[in-house]
Amino acid sequence: MVAYTTPPGDVEMALEERTVVLVEKKSSTGWMWKVSGALLIVALCIGGVLLFAWYSKGRPEMEMQSGQKEALTKTDTSEKTDHHDTLRRIGSKAKAAIHLEGSYDEDNKTSQLEWKNGQGQAFAQGGFRLEKNQIIIPQDGLFFVYSQASFRVSCSDGDEEHGAGKRLTPLSHRIWRYSESIGSNVSLMSAVRSACQNTALEEAYSSGQGWYNAIYLGAVFQLNSGDKVWTETNQPSELETDEGKTFFGVFAL
């Protein structure tokens, strides 16, 4: 029977093998740390992306809410503006529109309210014309016709008898239409106010502030090309013709 002995070389080789094994374990541990570190970096990146996405999603909502608040503010502001500014803005966006400012000259022989184009905020576009104080409709269709007459009446002038008469004075404003298809003048709209009717304001009347009120007319009508529309006011000398107080216009729908 042959006995085997381990030569010194084999022992050294075994030690080397054991050493190699130990090195492999050390390398494996380092690889695991690297993988863990990489996973941590990936997790941080994903977290950053999610955080950025959440922030990006939330910001438009904040901007939208801010925009809504701003829109509401603008709406509130627009609701507080008078008919003149609102109608002028609407009319300026229409393809065909005309907006006129009122004027009255006591020395004018006609003694009537005159409408001016190209004065103040007045304008005309889309074929509308102002001829002989009348608006000429450029085409068939639906139109919004509107007008406002502002009055300031001095109810007391020192003559009680005359002042009492003024308290009964009606103020009227009317819009007329003439169409060849009808062949006659037709009243589109009208309104009447009684001046100086509130006796509780006697002190204000006597101090020179007078009685102030405005008649506003506005409605939609089917008009034809060549139709004429104009206004009639019974007390033009009592009108307030400062810019934006007395106006007349039409715009296509």
Rank of each mutant, 00 (worst) to 15 (best):
11 V>Q: 08
72 L>N: 14
31 W>E: 13
34 K>I: 11
35 V>N: 08
44 L>D: 04
12 E>S: 12
65 Q>Y: 13
76 D>V: 06
57 K>E: 14
75 T>Y: 13
30 G>D: 10
60 P>I: 07
59 R>T: 12
50 L>D: 04
60 P>A: 01
48 G>E: 04
32 M>Y: 01
62 M>C: 02
33 W>M: 14
74 K>P: 06
14 A>H: 02
60 P>Q: 07
52 F>E: 01
29 T>G: 04
61 E>W: 04
30 G>Q: 03
76 D>R: 04
70 E>H: 05
48 G>A: 03
62 M>G: 01
59 R>P: 00
78 S>D: 15
22 L>F: 10
15 L>R: 10
51 L>W: 04
57 K>R: 15
17 E>D: 09
26 K>E: 05
72 L>W: 01
21 V>H: 10
45 C>Y: 05
25 K>Q: 06
18 R>K: 15
33 W>K: 13
73 T>N: 06
27 S>I: 14
15 L>T: 11
70 E>W: 06
29 T>Q: 08
17 E>V: 15
31 W>P: 00
66 S>Q: 12
55 Y>M: 06
28 S>W: 00
27 S>R: 01
13 M>N: 13
44 L>M: 09
50 L>A: 06
77 T>N: 09
64 M>D: 04
63 E>A: 03
46 I>R: 03
40 L>N: 10
70 E>M: 08
70 E>T: 09
51 L>G: 05
75 T>I: 07
44 L>N: 07
46 I>V: 07
20 V>Y: 06
12 E>F: 09
72 L>C: 03
15 L>S: 03
34 K>D: 10
32 M>N: 11
14 A>Y: 00
59 R>H: 08
30 G>I: 13
17 E>H: 10
40 L>S: 12
21 V>I: 15
23 V>H: 07
20 V>N: 04
76 D>H: 10
72 L>F: 01
59 R>C: 00
68 Q>S: 08
48 G>I: 06
58 G>S: 05
43 A>R: 03
64 M>T: 09
69 K>E: 08
33 W>Y: 15
48 G>M: 00
45 C>P: 00
33 W>C: 10
55 Y>T: 12
78 S>T: 08
54 W>T: 07
24 E>I: 07
32 M>R: 01
55 Y>F: 05
53 A>N: 15
53 A>R: 05
47 G>C: 03
61 E>R: 12
12 E>H: 12
47 G>M: 02
25 K>F: 13
12 E>M: 14
66 S>V: 01
56 S>M: 01
43 A>D: 03
28 S>M: 00
27 S>N: 09
39 L>H: 04
52 F>Q: 04
39 L>N: 08
22 L>C: 13
73 T>H: 09
38 A>M: 11
78 S>K: 08
18 R>I: 11
49 V>C: 07
53 A>Q: 14
54 W>V: 14
68 Q>I: 15
48 G>L: 00
18 R>M: 15
51 L>D: 07
16 E>M: 08
44 L>V: 10
68 Q>P: 00
23 V>K: 12
66 S>R: 12
45 C>H: 03
58 G>W: 02
40 L>Y: 09
